[in-house]
Design a protein around this nucleic acid. Structure first.
Lengths: 250, 250
DNA sequence: CGCGCAATTGACTGCCCTCAAAAAGCGTGG
DNA sequence: CCACGCTTTTTGAGGGCAGTCAATTGCGCG
């Protein structure tokens, strides 16, 4: 073999460079390693599994799959949904970069829902068993993990409030405002972004039909609160939308 | 002082007997100490704070209270509810003995909802800071805690499915079936129990009005699926109710 | 017995769903 | 570039499920 091939200089460092690295990841201020020092972050890097590309519309995991890994989203968007005994599906959340997938699987050691990529995406595998071992030596990591799980709980409580108490218009405004604040936290515009999900998926998540979503978009557009072109959306009156979401607009 | 007073034989053991004790608690197979050995359970006992009685209709904590303790329910029932910006309240769950309250507060260090006793109840205070210290030395405890948080997440995902996808009758059947299985897990009858909450509270939780709940009760009664007398309820056809909840009855 | 609150029942309304058709995107291939 | 087919979205008309409003009944308690 030709000794000039790069095969001949293989410090294991490169291997780990091919693997995921939290310190180099643009999401580390939002994701699991938030608040960790340099050395703790390296320990975390060592247990993080490979990066995995997840093409649009493919499943990261499906319900009842055995639970091995949590997944941190590096790039892209996902939806998680449950399928009821009667075959109906309910989307339980839309996730974006920096968020953690799979925490609902811990309780039964099997995934509790399907997770599908809404666009070509990329995740880091986090073997949960090894993560739990790390918790013993990095209390900061443990505490932040608890915050992330707790955050997931409050997120879903908010969704319950939305589904149980709000009228269609209010739900939709809350949905837009929620997306806006999450993009804002990631350094993107909070007033102008792309909807990564179809009208049908929005409707499913909000407990409404696709027709209702379409009508709501038309109405808000007519009222001058938003501008819409296909999946591109601009919030022209964020304050008004926030008030609408809070139910305090009148 | 009279040396015959019991003061003169004060092994600290008595003090801890006055405090909460997991090993002596009938709920320890369901609650936080599940699966712990004798010595680990004693370590847990040492950090558990006082028992606290919570009279009917009084608040264990309210939204925005600083987060100090988790609470394990020893006895009784609670409801947790959020109040939206518009002042509407949404019940996010009913909790019973062996369940943990307050996990939604970890993410922000403030409670995210109100927790009110539905009847005279009793809880154990669990100082969360000290619990986190224990996690480093009792991996079993940590793992079980994660399961309980994860369980809370799946519980709420199920509630989202219910609120987003089900018709009124299906929601109510799912509600009854859920209560039944939780009483069953606690060694009580799964077919005959007391509703600890009002019709109004049931309706609020299920995203329905009190009138709808009342009509549903009447209809299921007329169909011979249940027997009702005030808050006493008996499930006469649990299989049928399960099928109704699953949406597979026809 | 009478008061107050909770629950039930009935009549009617309205929000959102269902059904249906037209319009707009979007990828493919001529 | 346009034609074509397919999917997604929009728009319209009408219906139904659960909500609203209102009156009655039942139950606990002084």
């Amino acid at each position: 073999m030709n000794p000039t091939l790069s095969f001949s200089s293989p410090p294991p460092l490169n291997v780990s460079a091919l693997r995921a690295s939290c310190s180099a990841c643009s999401m580390h201020q939002l994701c699991l390693p938030m608040g960790l020092g340099e050395s703790d972050m390296q320990k975390l890097d060592q247990i993080i599994g490979r990066r995995r590309k997840v093409p649009k519309e493919s499943l990261l995991y499906r319900m009842d799959d055995p639970f091995i890994n949590l997944y941190a989203i590096r790039l892209g968007h996902f939806k998680t949904y449950q399928v009821s005994a009667g075959g109906e599906q309910q989307i339980t959340g839309f996730q974006m970069a920096g968020e953690l997938l799979g925490m609902d699987a811990i309780s039964t050691d099997r995934h509790h829902c399907d997770a599908m990529a809404l666009e070509d995406s990329e995740v880091c595998e986090i073997p949960f068993g090894r993560l739990e071992e790390l918790f013993g030596t990095i209390p900061t990591l443990l505490h932040h993990f608890h915050r992330m799980m707790s955050r997931e709980i409050t997120r879903e409580q908010n969704a319950m409030l939305l589904l149980g108490n709000m009228r269609a218009e209010q739900r939709f405004a809350a949905f837009l405002v929620n997306l806006a604040s999450r993009y804002s936290a990631r350094g993107y515009s909070s007033t102008s972004f792309q909807l990564r999900m179809s009208r049908e998926e929005i409707g499913n998540y909000l407990g409404l039909t696709i027709e209702s979503i379409s009508r709501l978009l038309s109405r808000l557009k007519k009222q001058g609160l938003i501008r819409v072109a296909n999946r591109e959306i601009e919030l022209l009156e964020p304050d008004h939308l926030r008030a609408m979401a809070a139910g305090t607009e009148h």
